[in-house]
Design a protein around this nucleic acid. Structure first.
Lengths: 226, 226
DNA sequence: CACCGGCGTCAGGGTCGCGTCAAGGACGCT
DNA sequence: AGCGTCCTTGACGCGACCCTGACGCCGGTG
């Protein structure tokens, strides 16, 4: 199920969007200002954000920057402004698309589909299955297999595993892990990492006390190794 | 260098795009019909395609499908048609964006940047690997390899190495090293440098007492040499 | 030849980060 | 309402890392 975050201060527009999206079985959250948008995004981790630029509390571009500080979620900007200047600013701040009001619902939905499709994890040429000596991760199917049996992971465990595996052998900083999994305000709670890394290792490592795949780089972060 | 494929049957538009893109140091190929577009895309592997829908030889949506059959390259559609129907078809066929003519060049370029930015993999920016006779440093992955084995570095060691390597053979002053690694208030603690340079040399130099890569410039600073 | 500043080396001690365990509490399901 | 799952939070021990001081070496200088 695709989760959409709709941000607009005009209730009529939010209503219209929510109805249309729910009818197409999207899961929809809504926020009516910039602060709420950032908060909700952090809490709910939407798959795509529809963002009105004319918010009461903060500049739309600031909202984009706030999101881009910790996530690459597609952002589809809505705006009444037709000026080229505005569009360029929003796009360069990290928006993925820009639609001017009034907009056609069909078109908006098509652009939304395009944004979501693009973000799908099917990497260029690479496939979504990563195999190690002791277990196999299928990122698309969201499944982990070990000794022929599926391993049950909690949502948080999954998210953490996902970020690590996507890192592809690169070191992932603690701060980045925390922000991507728990949200932008959790940059320092390294104890979460310790607890959940222990969980992952217990479930996936052959010898959890001597991890071969989830490597700690003290003081810096963690690394996933095949 | 980013490679763009421009597809349009109107020479004036192609000319305008080519000039503007080249001026921003994109590498540009051009095609004037669908068949040429597919052929050129296959031959040149562009990083992004700007595609006019009104081509003489085939339907624009067919071109999109032809591309999508084998590549996920971003496709930015240009069209004179404002109809919602057209946009939806193009986007659902696999286009990434849809701009109606006449278009503002600034906006088009911004959308182009957005499309390219989105497509590039995380952090895989430039050439982050530096190789020497005895070891290899991967700045993005934060990995050092020596004789096929990974070398474990502490955060401080890493930071120091990073600053030196980024210096790219130039002399880096002691004060600068101290400030960048330990913080702005540490301009004089040169003993830190001596200790950590010794660590780095012990871990990375073939003969730590006769360093070939971490060169001391007495009284001035240190230099990293390939 | 004695002195001195800069550098490399070594070893010890305090501190911090990491792994582990367990309990509390929120939430959803039956 | 009861239950289980999952997330959060705190405490604790241990090992690693960072700092620090002492010492020897070397080249330059008076």
């Amino acid at each position: 199920m695709t989760r959409v975050l709709v941000v607009d201060d005009e209730p009529a527009i939010v209503r219209a969007l929510v109805i249309n999206l729910r009818a197409r079985s999207y899961e929809v959250d809504a926020a009516h200002d910039g602060a709420g948008a950032l908060r909700t995004a952090a809490a709910r981790h939407p798959d795509v954000v529809v963002l009105d630029l004319g918010l009461p509390d903060m500049d739309g571009v600031e909202v984009i920057r706030g999101l881009r500080g910790w996530t690459r979620v597609p952002i589809l900007v809505l705006s009444a402004r037709h000026a080229s200047e505005e569009k360029v600013q929003a796009l360069d701040a990290g928006a993925d698309d820009y639609v001017t009001k009034p907009f056609g619902m069909d078109e908006l939905l098509a652009r939304l589909r395009a944004a979501v499709r693009r973000a799908e994890p099917v990497g260029d040429g690479g496939d979504t299955v990563v195999e190690t000596a002791t277990f196999t991760v299928d990122l698309a199917a969201k499944k982990v297999n070990r000794d022929g049996k599926d391993v049950r992971l909690t949502p948080t465990e999954w998210h953490l595993l996902e970020v690590l595996v996507r890192g592809g052998g690169r070191l992932v900083a603690q701060k980045q892990l925390l922000r991507e999994v728990w949200g932008p305000s959790y940059g320092t709670e390294t104890n979460y990492l310790r607890v959940y890394m222990a969980q992952l290792r217990r479930k996936l490592e052959a010898d959890p006390s001597h991890p071969k795949h989830f490597i700690t780089e003290p003081g810096m972060g963690y690394r996933f190794e095949k």
